[in-house]
Amino acid sequence: MQHLYDLLIAPFVDFAFMRRALAGCLALSLGSGPIGLFLVMRRMSLMGDAMSHAVLPGAAVGFMLAGLSLPAMSLGGFVAGVLVAVLAGLATRFSSIKEDASFAAFYLLSLAIGVLLVSKSGSNVDLMHILFGSVLAVDDAALYLVSGVASVTLICLAFIYRPMLLESLDPVFLRSVGARGGLWHMAFLMLVVLNLVSGFQALGTLMAVGLMMLPAITARLWSESVEGMLVMAVSVAFVSGMAGLLLSYHFELPSGPAIILVAGLFYLFSLLFAPAGGALPRYIRARHFES
């Protein structure tokens, strides 16, 4: 019993930075989990990845102007992300290019600018920090940002839930009742950017996508209702965060990849065994119908 306490509880009791990191993970899970789920349902799973790259030049500009300052880098990242989303949206609307291709084009442009800026102005250490973050270095300001973003995300999602689901499901019907599908889509993309920005201090721009997508994809394998998936996505994200932190503490691993790897293990396990879409349950059911 004492051993389990030392393993699972003591690190959080003994160290404030671990508690802060855990609180950060909870807030991140509450915001990113649901956003990831909507990305999966709207068949935009790779969009999160694209947007995370798009955020980079903004964060770099923020860094150049204000140093390693969270508000500046976050604001820069948000502006860059929204700019890419708006430009890609306009390109989709006014040309024959499909949305995924437009996003690919604009995020690559953005990424190239970002790498250029970082390599001209910062050291490799800074670049590593922007790309990979450090949840163990989360300070009060970052915690406010992450929990503020999570709150805004949940409130906004509650408002745009119905039109957004209908827009994925049956876009022409939504048009026929006079609702503008594109408006909700744009609001949603802003939430995606917001959550990536909030994740990058803790996990870095690259790993933030992991906590967004892996729990969401895992959730789809476990439940057949949106409510069930939401609960599952948030839970998997938070448990991954906690387990990742502990792994990183006990084995001196970088926290970001540790968290994402735990989420990845959840995913691999679910891929095989999850009841609502896993490979083995499906295989067994197929066999059953055969006999």
């Binding site: 349902m41 689901l165 049956d170 026929s176 949106v226």
Partner: peptide, 21 residues
């Protein structure tokens, strides 16, 4: 008016993979 109009889309335009009852 808007609410006086009902429209039935072609089935191919609806994504039935979504978890909706």
């Amino acid at each position: 008016a808007r609410q006086d109009i009902a429209y039935l889309p072609q089935q191919s335009e609806i994504d039935r993979s979504l978890p909706v009852s």
